[in-house]
Write a protein that binds this DNA or RNA. Structure first.
Lengths: 132, 132
DNA sequence: CTTGAGTCTGTAGCGACTACAGACGGTAGA
DNA sequence: TCTACCGTCTGTAGTCGCTACAGACTCAAG
């Protein structure tokens, strides 16, 4: 299959597919006479893996590690678990950060009385020591 | 005050202060004879505003807009509210995305039986149609 | 007088793409 | 057969918000 088909099949942009190749995540495929990339089912499978991992928020580095592990079928699974668990912890930290932000933002926005900027509570909150 | 003092006072790195100046967020201060930046209290106040806004997750573009509004004290406050509300919506979207990710990750990790990669549920889940 | 810390400018790097420019290939309708 | 148009190619630069240098300077303390 050509790059456009592969891209469509995995909901990826063509440029991103080429980017993954340059980044060493997707092996360089054969080329046609016209120098077009020609992918096989193994590429489709590998790109699907990458996309799914990315959807779960894994970094490209993590995806690289996961792919290497996936290719090493005899290895114990704990390394995979470690990567995933580490990532989960990070996601949880981000959720906590954003939840705190949300609380602050709601508080700040809730205090807006829709007057002028001069006595805007939002601006006041942002600039803590504004006295003019 | 010199850039290092300003940076310490606002928990900002010196390079970041200079970056904000280049980015047009912090006005260029006077210079000493030795060409050192010399900041006044208005810079401290403005940088505090920037930092607080960044802590709440506003983009630099949004901070620029907020600063412009803060300087225009007669304007109605609704524009400020709009920026903040838009940002809140985005934060909520991110929380929803991350929460979905977290659920998926927990499910995937929970299925790990700590065997070899060959029958690792995590790898299986990531590569949907792996049959070897 | 020397040492060390702070400051200066300018540039390049990060992650994960995205968006071109400019050239070439392939195909379907007129 | 011509032509229009899409797809593909390479290479490079842009995005965001910093961060990290390199190499030169200044300043204060001992």
């Amino acid at each position: 299959m050509k790059i456009g088909e592969l891209a469509r099949a995995t909901a990826t942009k063509v440029e991103t597919v080429r980017f993954y190749e340059r980044a060493g995540l997707l092996p360089p495929p054969d080329r046609t006479d016209a120098n077009y990339r020609s992918y096989g089912p193994e590429h489709l499978q590998r790109l699907s893996f990458i996309r799914r991992s990315r959807d779960l928020g894994f970094s490209l580095d993590a995806v690289r590690d996961l792919l290497a592990l996936a290719d090493d079928r005899g290895k114990p699974c704990d390394a995979v678990d470690a990567i995933a668990s580490g990532h989960l912890a990070e996601v949880e930290r981000k959720i906590a950060d954003l939840t705190a932000m949300r609380g602050e933002l709601r508080r700040v926005i809730g205090s807006c009385r829709h007057n002028t900027v001069a006595d805007c509570k939002i601006i006041e909150t942002l600039g803590p020591r504004r006295d003019a």
